[in-house]
């Protein structure tokens, strides 16, 4: 059927452009392309700020092109096209964002052993499966034992040097929650949190932070102790 083209004002067409809209869209897109380009080339911004900026510019250019080239948002209701686009963009954020989140967590938790040690070293995490993580290049020193028995830590005070090892042993029949700091204010030591210590279990801590640090049994508060680390 060869029909001559007829003005399509009567049809429910969602896109209806004008010269102005195309030119505006073109110029704006040029601007929003060149700015991030020069920001990157001239290194005017760095790191996260740069990343956020160029992604922000990309999103704005997306909106520019959607409005000025695709004429979205001007259709009569129900605005299915717009709704579908918004849903799709949300889904893309979910797909890409969740993938990055999940894969990053998997990567961190499941890396091969040799890489794990390197990361532990970089992040100053000193306990990795009970093995030292390379922060004490000269190796570890003396081993000090603290026994927890009958709600008493003995010895109550330990004096040690950097890169010595402290082993806290729970010789009672109850589980203890050995936390650093005091009952009212828990702390971390060398990036490590406190935690449960079951009966007859022990915990090994490489002493890589200087100073005096307290620990206590959070369940049985009268059981406290401390250790001092000097260089």
């Amino acid at each position: 059927m060869n029909k001559t083209p007829h003005p399509t004002n009567t049809s429910p067409k969602p896109h209806h452009g004008t010269l102005t809209s195309y030119v505006t869209g073109f110029v704006l897109s040029l601007v929003f392309t060149l700015i991030p380009y020069y920001l990157v080339v001239n290194k005017s911004l760095r790191g996260d700020a740069l990343l956020a900026t160029i992604i922000g510019f990309a999103i704005v250019q997306l909106v520019i092109q959607v409005v000025f080239f695709l004429h979205l948002g001007r259709e009569k209701k129900p605005r299915w096209n717009l709704l579908f686009l918004i849903s799709t963009v949300s889904l893309i954020v979910l797909v890409v964002g969740a993938s990055i989140w999940i894969m990053r967590h998997l990567h961190y938790n499941m890396m091969p052993g040799d890489v794990t040690n390197k990361v532990a070293n970089d992040e100053a995490v000193h306990q990795v499966s009970g093995l030292q993580a390379g922060t004490c290049p000269g190796g570890t020193g003396t081993i000090y034992k603290v026994e927890l028995k009958n709600d008493v830590a003995s010895p109550r005070h330990t004096n040690a040097h950097l890169c010595d090892i402290l082993i806290i042993m729970n010789l009672d029949d109850t589980t203890r929650d050995i936390e650093f700091g005091v009952h009212a204010k828990h702390e971390t030591y060398a990036g490590e949190f406190g935690g449960a210590l079951r009966p007859h279990y022990s915990r090994m801590i490489t002493l890589t932070e200087l100073g005096t640090h307290k620990f206590h049994d959070h369940l049985e508060d009268k059981m406290t102790g401390d250790f001092t680390v000097t260089p």
């Binding site: 896109h15 991030p36 992604i55 092109q65 695709l70």
Partner: peptide, 24 residues
């Protein structure tokens, strides 16, 4: 034309995520 505009929109993100982001 819808298809062509859409391909340019996808390219915005390729330009940003692949090329520009390589230098961030």
């Amino acid at each position: 034309s819808l298809f062509w505009h859409f391909l340019d929109i996808v390219w915005i993100f390729i330009f940003t995520v692949v090329y520009l982001m390589a230098y961030v």
